[in-house]
Amino acid sequence: MNEPVEKLTENQPRRLPRWVVGLAFFILLAFLVLIAWGLRRAQQGPIVIGQKVPYFTLHTFEGEQIKTADLLGKVVVLNFWASWCKPCEQEAADLQRAYEFYAPSGQVVFLGVDWVDTEPEALGYLDQFNITYPNGPDLRTKISQIFRTTGVPETYFIDPEGNLAYVKKGPFLSINEIMAVIDPLIP
């Protein structure tokens, strides 16, 4: 009958340990920094004309490593292509002829970047069009991400100072079109 009842006492809310609160804030802050970094990276636009092109390394199909940092002082013609790309076939012969034209001077370097392609077909393509300038796969699509390419073919011309000088989206229609871009860049 006379059961104990409950009595009011002072309200003392329990608090989390300080290290738990600190850790929670740290995790939240780190997460926000990560999101901010990702958004900044995603919103970065392509390299614009006149802007310095970040250095990268092309691993050729022959196993050679070509570092663009070593190519300062030369005009670099960087062509993105793929064996499954029909418009790329249109310009393949002209690019090779342009390469052969400038090769003796040693002032122009042609590099082919094989984008999202399979190696057997890529090698077949190079063989079919007798392409002899250095070509290699875009490993992990790192090079195309630098330029934020939107497809193939795309060709980027880098001046001797390492700045982006010209961008061609789509195939070249003639060797003259290629030479018209290269000639003014040669020091």
Binding site: N2, E3, P4, V5, E6, K7, L8, T9, E10, N11, Q12
Partner: peptide, 11 residues
């Protein structure tokens, strides 16, 4: 508030 028990006399 948190609670605690009281005796029958207090009740």
């Amino acid at each position: 508030a948190p609670v605690e028990t009281i005796s029958p006399a207090e009740e």
